[in-house]
Design a protein around this nucleic acid. Structure first.
Length: 354
DNA sequence: GACATTTGACCGCG
DNA sequence: CGCGGTCAAATGTC
């Protein structure tokens, strides 16, 4: 690709980021005032389009530079999401290989992994981290060596019915019992089903299932805002040293990194990249924290992803994408195995990972 | 009865 | 071999 000047790229990026930010604000606004899923969907697509543009811009900006990144699996994991569910940390998170036995190994050969820290206000009477918009089923609990509190293991309620292999681990912080570290693994593929047809009434027994829609959450603004304010982003584990050579931390992000929290939107203009394919843009039909997540979009941090993606890495990214966005590349709205994806999607398309 | 959680056992990896 | 993650039977709840 013909390369624009750094200045031009910067300006373009800024403009696109601004547009996206405004779209996010509009979306949040609409979400709170006139909760229409159709509108939300459109806005999601607009935002996604911005993201893609930024993504392409970003990577084309890097084109021509030898990029040998640290394998993502070796990249330090960062924790994010001040606002409940910014999952864009995908881009920075570890992409871990899973060698589960049996069928599971196929499905979860690769899973996107990211961590959030959620601070729970005891006043709220919450036993655990708040609703994150998904329906989880606990399948295990383990005492972890060196940890005061046991770790709980959850998987998507719809694992069977919808073949959704998302899981999460909840670990209460040793230092501050009101902080829960939630590690998400894999992304939800149950969404597409929900778009196609309403999910069966879930028993919703988990205490954290009280607010399952973004609108519901917004209607409970006092609690939400409290919850929101209690959420923390922990990026301190990000080891910039291990970032690929091409990666440049946006100043805002780096700053927040030290402050242990962030307001990521501002970072977008600086460094927007494959975060577009984070599980951020959940379907409004299913994600309770949807509004939040977009409104407080976390800077996608794909520094940990090497330019020379392994097929599995990309497949995972795409899996996350296909499963969580309404406007993935080419409008892919289907549940598909990563292995299948990487056979379909032209990742060598200029601007993507090249 | 259908769903959930609990919990000991099992398995793979380092 | 120890640890973390998952399975699955037992049990609980609605």
């Amino acid at each position: 690709m013909e390369r624009a000047s750094t200045w031009e790229l910067k300006v373009l990026t800024d403009e696109l980021a601004q547009g996206m930010e405004k779209a996010m604000q509009l979306r949040l606004h609409l979400c709170s005032t006139s909760p229409s899923e159709a509108e939300d969907l459109i806005l999601q697509r607009i935002i996604s389009t911005f993201e893609k543009a930024l993504c392409i811009l970003k990577w084309s900006g890097h084109a021509g530079v030898a990029q040998v990144g640290v394998p993502s699996s070796a990249a330090p994991e960062s924790t994010i999401s001040a606002d409940g569910s910014s999952r864009s940390d995908d881009m920075n998170k570890s992409f871990t290989d899973y060698q589960d036995r049996g069928d599971a190994s196929k499905k979860r050969k690769l899973q996107t992994t990211w961590t959030e820290q959620v601070k729970v206000n005891p006043e709220n009477g919450l036993e655990g981290p708040g609703e994150d918009g998904y329906s989880w089923r606990k399948y295990g609990q383990k005492d972890i060596l060196g940890a005061k509190h046991p770790r709980s293991y959850y998987r998507c309620t719809y694992r069977q019915g919808r073949n959704c292999w998302a899981t999460k681990q909840v670990q209460r912080s040793d230092e501050d019992p009101t902080i829960f570290e939630i590690t998400y693994k894999g992304t939800h593929t149950c969404k597409q089903f929900q778009n196609a047809a309403p999910p069966p009434a879930s028993p919703e027994k988990q205490e954290q299932k009280s607010n399952n829609s973004c609108y519901d959450q917004l209607e409970q603004n006092p609690i939400l805002s409290k919850f929101k304010s209690n959420l923390r982003v922990n990026t301190e584990v990000v080891d910039i040293q291990e970032m690929p050579a091409h990666f440049s931390f946006p100043s805002t992000f780096a700053c927040h990194e030290k402050e242990n929290h962030c307001s990521p939107i501002s970072a977008l203009a600086e460094d927007n990249n494959l975060g577009a394919y984070s599980p951020l843009f959940y379907s409004p039909a299913t994600s309770g924290s949807n509004c939040f997540s977009t409104a407080t979009y976390q800077m996608p941090d794909y520094g940990g992803i090497p330019m020379q993606h392994s097929e599995t890495d990309i497949a995972d990214i795409m899996s996350a994408n296909a499963s969580t966005t309404n406007s993935p590349i080419g409008g892919m709205e289907f549940s598909i195995d990563p292995v299948e994806i990487d056979q379909i999607f032209p990742f060598n398309t200029p601007g993507f990972f090249t």
